[in-house]
Design a protein around this nucleic acid. Structure first.
Lengths: 233, 233
DNA sequence: ACGGATCCAATGGTGGATCCCG
DNA sequence: CGGGATCCACCATTGGATCCGT
């Protein structure tokens, strides 16, 4: 009962309060959390792919809506769910943000959206083994993360390589195989969706929208580092 | 029955075909036309202000949807309903297009959206006396119009005056009283809606969206000229 | 009478991600 | 396995205009 005082969609006022809320929901199922907000749990995620992320935003009081801001506006913190396979490692890559197809050449790492998005992330592990019914999946312990210097270097290197490839060869020269920790993949309702882009010759063309994703190998390292850190306490 | 062959939402292939369709619907009521498309007629227009225009677009096979194109893409023709008061003259001003608040200074008459929108218009008179139930209002005879040199001069003069006023004084310096045949008025869901604009100093600010409207005195002249023209046949 | 305010439907884009076939 | 394809909710914008108080 008193738990729900913290779960009423009011933004947390501090990092401490946000982490406290994470402690409260850790060990609860998605079904229990959805019930607190009178939200119906879909049978599966096939037609509701972002459902878990949206639910946990509401539960934790994220307030940015669909704006180009961190989920927790006041704290500058981005929320990311981390879907865990049966073996406890990340099951999927993590979507970060869309790739601008109109300002590819003009942007530098220091100013880019991806860097700002990943500046401070609250990772929230959630069971994602499809043999477990959605409502019965447990939420793990959320933790704050900021990229360490080595991770920053990796991200910067990949970002610059990928953006260079975009400028030099356009979308044709891009494959999701490029990048050690980062990759570029389609991000749209379907492959018929087109966004405005700029061709080699400077003219406007239409291309499939793309997004930056963190490879699951990278998020697996983040997860492991956090566990090690907590054991050391 | 055979009439409905022409009313199946396929775009007309020529001006002649479009005008033929207008002949077919002239003298029918909005209720009759709506019934052909299985569309329910609202009680009144208070909460359905664009309903008549949308219905007639569907009936005539306009295909541009909500794009920045003429309603009849292939023919380069814009459809405008002309609401008639009990005395047969236009009851309202006619909305043309939105006023760009970000490129006010850069644009010339030759390139402006308003000029392109008004290059070729199919006017479709419709009874709009509120004492007549919506479903019982008659559609009149549609006619094609292109501004004659005098009308072009008037539109150009007003457009330039209004755009100059916008650049010089911003929205504060603008009144719907300016312009002989054209005026600028709010165009939004309500007065709390804001759009991006550029201030005097070049910075970005928020302003109420505005639209260009043809004064009803102007559309009355267009209507009269068409009647005179048809009597002369 | 008309200048300022308002209303709906449909679409496109963004943010949330997972699906699924070779 | 993982690269390419896809899915929903929500919000802002656009296109269709008419309402209504002074």
């Amino acid at each position: 009962m008193s738990d729900e005082i913290y779960l009423n969609q009011v933004p947390p006022q501090s990092e401490a309060e946000l982490l406290q809320r994470c402690q409260i929901i850790a060990g609860q199922t998605l079904g229990q959390l959805a019930a607190q907000l009178n939200i119906v749990v879909p049978a599966d995620l096939r037609r509701h792919k972002g459902w878990v992320g949206s639910l946990l935003e509401k539960i934790l009081g994220a307030d940015a809506g669909n704006h180009a801001e961190p989920d927790f506006t006041g704290l500058g913190i981005e929320l990311k769910t981390l879907p865990l396979a049966a073996n406890g490692s990340p099951k999927e890559s993590t979507y970060v943000c869309t790739v601008s197809l109109t300002e590819t050449g003009e942007l530098r790492w220091q100013d880019c959206w991806l860097r700002r998005k990943l500046a401070k992330v609250l990772w929230l592990p959630v069971e994602a083994d499809n043999t477990i019914p959605l409502a019965e999946r447990y939420v793990g312990e959320g933790f704050l993360w900021q990229p360490d210097p080595e991770q920053v270097a990796l991200l910067k290197q990949d970002w610059e390589e990928l953006m260079d490839a975009l400028v030099l060869s356009g979308q044709a020269g891009l494959s999701a195989r490029q990048g050690q920790v980062l990759q570029i993949r389609p991000k749209a309702a379907n492959s018929r969706v087109l966004a405005q882009a700029i061709a080699d010759d400077g003219s406007f063309i239409q291309q499939n929208p793309r997004g930056f994703y963190l490879r699951s190998e990278f998020t697996a390292q983040i997860l492991q580092a956090n566990k090690a850190c907590r054991l050391a306490d």
